[in-house]
Amino acid sequence: MLPDLNNLPVYDQTGVNERIQRFCSRSIKTSSKTAGLKLAISMIDLTTLEGKDTKGKVRQLCYKAMHPHDSIKDLPTVAAICVYPSYVSTAKKALQGSDIKVASVSTAFPSGQSSLEAKLTETKFAVEQGADEIDMVISRGQFLAGNYQYVFDEIASVKEACGQAHLKVILETGELDTLDNVRKASEIAMFAGADFIKTSTGKIQPAATMQVTYVMLDAIQDFYLRTGKMIGIKPAGGISTAKIALQYLVILNEVLGEKWMNKNYFRFGASSLVNDILMQLVKTETGMYQSPIYFSKD
């Protein structure tokens, strides 16, 4: 049932900014940094969502997911590959034998402007092709027009269509304008059955920001205290450096705590982040600053 959206906390932009500032000033060095970077790699949904994607590109990305950089010892694989529904079977086959999940975007990604029927068919197709996770977008137009019930019902129907697959709900916070709207959309998504809430498609600027991530973490915590159910979170888009990734981990740990510090409850939607983290790890090992030309493309 649609939750009561009238009594949600309201967010003070300045207050949120200040809180974020304090998280970002933490200094994480040496062994904690290495551990944090490896953890971050294990949480990445390595993503390719372009019109020009091909089977070859997807297979190459899958190889990168399984072997981020073989010369670094004890390096985890990434959490999942994120592709369009048409490449789910390609990715599934390429990832055979590994425990890397295949996530598929769905519901007329990235705009979400299509009929519910088409969205459900697309979702079922992705699941039949073998997708372990579905990344759906909410109907921002309906949300901004105040049709919260529509948004709620749509998420609930997609969740049903997902069956066993995990559902990540993309709020596309760059189009929601205010932090209060982000909170509202998070509530709707969690009550409608989302397993994860995700900030952005990566196609709209601004994509993931620490401010919206913080508000979403706050919503997840309240939801957990009320229902006992742990919801995951996935900031996506624009997180391209190791430094920023570590700052996200700090925020996660501070707001939700250690229980959330694993790939079951936290993901980065990213592509170029992997190489930046790898460069940092090799730098820590060798003491020499690295160049992207010595790392495989993603």
Binding site: M288, Y289, Q290, S291, P292, I293
Partner: peptide, 8 residues
């Protein structure tokens, strides 16, 4: 040393 060793 860093100016000489930087891989980029």
């Amino acid at each position: 040393s860093h100016m000489a060793s930087h891989m980029d």
